[in-house]
Structure formats: C-alpha cells, structure tokens
C-alpha cells in the first residue's frame, strides 16, 4: 500500500478517509486535524496559557507534543491518585515526557497531600473509585488553572471518548448531560474554559501518531477501566465503524449540528462558592471538601 501523497510505503491506512499515508504525511495530517479543531471551535490563541492534564497515556501525551510543536504555551499537570503500580508507572511516563520535551510539569499526589490514595476515600464515602476519580481530577485541574492563572485547560479526549459518552447518554436519554460532550466549554467564574483539541481524531490515530513520533506512553490500563461501561460503547461503535467507516465522525458532527434540540434541556444551575475552599459548587460545601475535609465539613454542620 502506497502513501496517497508521495507514493512511499504507507505506514497506516485511515479507513474513514480512505487514505493510506506514510509516516511523514500521516503526522502532518494529524497535526492539521488538531489545528482545524482549535480553529473550528476557537479554542485558544498562541498567547494564551494552556494547562494540559496528562495521564502518561497516548492521548494526553500526543496532545501535549502537538500543541508544543505548534508553538502554543503549554504546561502539564499530572494528578497522582495513588492507584498502586498503575499510578507509579503513569507518573514515570509523565516525568520522562516533560524532561524530554523540556515542559513544565506539576504533580499533585493524593498520598502526599492527604496521606492516602483514592481507594482510602472510597471506603470512607462508599463511592466507586471512578466516580471519585473524575471529581478529584476536575477539582484539581480547575483549582490549578485558576490559582496559577491559566487561560484554558486542555484534555486528551478523542473522538472515541466523545461518541461513546454520547451514545451512552442517548441510550439513557440523559439529554441534559449531552452538552458536556462539546469540544469547548466556556469559562464560568473561577472555572477556566476547557478544550478538547483531539476531537477529530480516533484512538487508533492518536496511538499511531504517538508511536510514529517517538513518544513513549503508558500502555497499561487503569485497573478500574475494565468495568468502565463506556468501553462497551467503544466496542459497539467500532463494530459499526468497521463496516461503515466514518460513522463515528458523522455521529459526532450530527450531534453538533443538532445541538439546539438538546440545549433546551440543559440544566441551568447557579453555582455558589464552597464555604471551605471557595471553589464553585452546587451546594454550600463542594463534593471535594465533603470527601477530603470531612471533619471540617462536619464541624461546620454541613454534613
């Protein structure tokens, strides 16, 4: 199979575009897709400070690499949840990446800050690891972005992440959640805007890009992801994609075009400042403080 652009041996075929490409033209193609997403949704400008949340995996490292290559002002944040060997390994990949590309990396470790990893808090709150994990990550990236005056938080969510969440929410008709699957969430008070520049790329594309660009990334999965229901959604969508290439992309594009149908179901909620930490919250004490500052919350008579 030959590269459509130069006739050299193809490194990959992109079925969705019916396009075989060599290493060089594939990497160029991927970078153009990221530029297009940033441009199409006016995500950020060159002079803005970007905080990229990284996990050591292919998506967040490929995103950091591309943004850095395109000349954006990028800093990295890794949140160490203390999930045994998995978190230790993730941290090593993040540190190596930051060193190799001379990028600044901030690490927040639950064990160092709170004396125990995320599982310790699950026992205490009877919540699942995954539900606490999402809350903790959101809390810290919002906090760091605000306190360190970043303009935007960028995450490595790709097309597969977006369409699997979309399908899951549509199957459950949780229409008020659908707007969270937007490529850009605007700034709101202390919450900085959030951008997903990889939304035009599939997981296979980001993995191939990371590999062909010489980025070492963690291939081990979080031990809790085996139960993550949206993995099932991903497999289903990939079955369809295999027989009808382009379905995932057109599903997502259709969602963006029909957003007005769901916008009216969007929950308009008033956020208040948490009494303990001052960050935006639905209640007087935010979920993070209810979990991590339980005693203080109790003393304040709020739980």
């Amino acid at each position: 199979m030959k590269c459509r652009k130069c006739g050299e041996k193809a490194a990959i075929k992109l079925y969705q575009h019916n396009l075989p490409l060599c290493r060089e033209h594939f990497c160029e193609f991927i970078e153009e897709r990221v530029k297009k997403a940033i441009h199409d949704f006016a995500m950020f400008e060159k002079e803005e400070k970007i905080l990229v949340v990284i996990s050591g995996g292919k998506d967040s490292l490929a995103l950091s690499y591309i943004l850095n290559k395109l000349g954006y002002d990028v800093s990295l944040l890794y949140i160490d949840l203390g999930i045994d060997e998995y978190s230790d390994n993730s941290r090593v990949f993040c540190e190596e990446f930051a060193r190799k590309f001379a990028l600044s990396l901030k690490i927040i470790s639950l064990k160092e800050e709170w004396g125990k990893g995320i599982r310790g808090f699950c026992r205490q709150t009877y919540k699942s690891v995954c539900s606490l994990c999402g809350m903790v990550k959101r809390y810290y990236f919002n906090k760091v972005a605000y306190e360190e005056e970043f303009d935007v938080v960028a995450t490595g969510h790709n097309l597969d992440d977006m369409v699997s969440a979309l399908l899951s929410n549509i199957l459950g008709w949780r229409t008020s959640y659908l707007v969270k699957q937007l490529p850009l969430l605007p700034e709101e008070g202390k919450l900085k805007k959030k951008a997903k520049p990889l939304i035009y790329l599939t997981e296979r594309e980001t993995a191939a890009y990371a590999f062909l660009s010489g980025i070492s990334f963690l291939r081990e999965e979080c031990p809790y992801s085996r139960d993550a229901s949206f993995l099932r959604m991903k497999h289903l969508l990939n079955e369809i994609e295999m027989s009808s290439p382009g379905t995932k992309f057109s599903f997502y594009r259709g969602f963006l075009e029909n957003l007005h149908l769901f916008r009216k179901n969007e929950d308009k909620v008033e956020l208040k400042d948490c009494l303990l930490c001052g960050f935006p919250s639905l209640f007087e004490i935010c979920s993070f403080c209810k979990t991590f500052r339980k005693e203080e919350a109790k003393n304040a008579g709020k739980i």
């Binding site: 949340v53 995996g57 998506d59 999402g134 990550k137 296979r204 993995a207 590999f211 979080c222 990939n238």
Partner: peptide
C-alpha cells in the same frame, strides 16, 4: 514501524499488536 492490513509478515518477523482502546481519560 507500523504495518497496514495489507502488509505481509514474513516467517522470521516478530510483530506486536497494541490495543489502543482505553477506558479512562484525564478528567473523565
């Protein structure tokens, strides 16, 4: 290097298949 679906793997080759579907993403 990466191999496309049409490529041949020869008798002396050693090849690895990497799974690329992941269950979690930062901030999910």
């Amino acid at each position: 290097t990466l191999l496309t679906e049409n490529d041949w793997v020869e008798v002396d080759d050693k090849v690895e298949i990497w799974r690329v579907v992941s269950g979690g993403a930062p901030g999910d």
